[in-house]
Structures are given as C-alpha cells and as structure tokens.
C-alpha cells in the first residue's frame, strides 16, 4: 500500500491541458507540409519521381496527404525549397479532396456535419476496426486512453461491441481477408452512424497501395465521414480531429 502511495505521489498529475493549452511538438516532427508553389518545376519533378508513395502531383504541385506517409524525403531532396514539414498536427478533413493540398487545410470544425455535433457532441462511442493495420495506428489510438491524453474526459470512448457504438474507426488498408468482417461490424452499428478512416492505409492503401490483397480505400466500401491522415496519425492529430468534428 505504501508503495502505491509513493508511486502515486511520484507520478503526480500528468494530463495535458490540450486543447485549452497548445502543445508544441519537437521540431523534427513532420506535420502539415507547407508547399512553395513557386518552386522550380525541375525540383518538383525530382521530388515527385523519388516520392515512395507517388503522392506529389507535378502539375498542381500538391501533396496528397491521404497517400503521404510523412517520410520527409521531398523535404530532404528539395532542401526545404519545395516542401517543408511544419509541426502542425491538425490534419483531419471531412472530404477526401481537401487532402490534396498546398498546405492549407480548411478548418475542420466548420466542415463537420452539424447533426453529428448535435448527436455525438456530448457522448461519442466508437468501435475500432483494425483491417490490415500494421499496429502503429492501433497503438497510437490506444495511447489516447492513457492518462496524458485521457480521451474519456471528452465523453469519447472506444467500446467493445459495435452494438454499443455510434460509429466505426477503421485503420489499415482493408485486407481482402478483413473485408467481410469490416462490413459486418459496420452493419452491426445502429444508425445514425459515423465512419472514420484513420491513417494513410485506410484512406488510400498507404504503403500497400496496388496490392491485390487489399481493398485499399475504405470509402469505396463504406462512405467515409472523417479522414485522419498520417502514418500513423499522431495521437494529437486524432484527438484534434475528433474534438473538432464532433464537439
């Protein structure tokens, strides 16, 4: 018992004040990329050719954040002249098209459906489905339940049964072997319900795009309401998206 008390005193109170207070992530963190559209075409083409995810469009000079895995190669190659990754972790969008970007995403709060806020603003229960996810997305969702983030203080919970859920949160490129289970879980959620695609895999197939063993795009299976990019999304990216979309 003494040890429990001693440890409790040592650990103290650790929960972040976010979103009331901002969190600065370390400068090496790669968040929302800023793109210089005046960058020379040659350099853009070089970055696009080297991009392992083929996420750069040379014509529009946009990056597809639904494909990007934030490896930072384009920033290295262009020495920051074409792309510079900021530490801004606020990446969630309600539309797939918004993820093709020069680094200026619309404010998520204004683009979320009002009836979702009314229905789920005070209580949101989500069923998580890992459908081919590599366990990085899953791990950084689990982190939201630790004392630092303490997701439940916002009335948001990940629940065990789809019957208890208001929606599904999907990670992974939807492997063919998880297609049926994903659909069955979604069908088991009572309506009205929301669908969240989290991570490059669920949005575009991510690192596995083009594989015949995956569906590769959750939206082609079930209409998606909220996109959370990243590989994996930082826990704060997910937290920001959930709070702005639903609260």
């Amino acid at each position: 018992m003494l040890k429990v008390i001693k440890n409790r005193l040592e650990q103290g109170h650790r929960t972040t004040k976010y979103p009331k207070a901002q969190i600065e992530l370390y400068k090496r963190f790669r968040g929302l990329p800023k793109i210089d559209t005046k960058c020379a075409d040659g350099l853009v083409q070089r970055c696009a050719a080297a991009c392992p995810q083929d996420a750069i469009d040379t014509k529009t000079k946009q990056i597809d954040l639904g494909r990007c895995v934030f490896c930072g190669l384009c920033e290295t190659l262009s020495e920051g002249q074409f792309v510079k990754f900021s530490q801004n972790f606020e990446l969630g969008t309600s539309s797939r098209d918004d993820l093709f970007t020069h680094g200026d995403l619309p404010a998520l709060a204004e683009h979320s459906q009002k009836h979702f806020k009314k229905l789920f603003g005070r209580s949101l229960q989500l069923r998580q489905i890992s459908a081919g996810g590599c366990n990085a997305c899953e791990a950084d969702i689990n982190v939201l339940n630790t004392p630092f983030f303490d997701l439940q203080r916002f009335g948001i919970q990940f629940v065990a049964s789809p019957r208890h859920a208001d929606g599904i949160h999907v990670t992974g490129p939807i492997s063919e072997n998880m297609r049926q289970a994903t659909l069955t879980t979604w069908e088991a959620v009572p309506g009205p319900k929301v669908v969240i695609a989290s991570g490059a895999c669920a949005i575009s197939g991510g690192p596995f795009h083009g594989s015949p063993e995956i569906v590769g795009d959750l939206n082609s299976l079930i209409p998606v309401d909220l996109y959370i990019p990243g590989c994996p999304p930082h826990p704060l990216t997910t937290l920001h998206a959930l709070l702005n979309f639903f609260k």
């Binding site: 490896c71 081919g132 998880m178 083009g210 063993e213």
Partner: peptide
C-alpha cells in the same frame, strides 16, 4: 491471415523506392 496484405509479393514487384516504406 486476416491482416494479409501481400507484403512479399509487393517487395518483389514494386519500384525500389517503395521498399523502405513497406
């Protein structure tokens, strides 16, 4: 088997630049 994404096949067929990401 539910998580099968065809990794080995991808590694044998995709452009070299994708290998580290996979």
């Amino acid at each position: 088997g539910y998580q099968h994404r065809g990794v080995e096949k991808l590694l044998q067929t995709v452009p070299f630049k994708r290998l580290p990401i996979i």
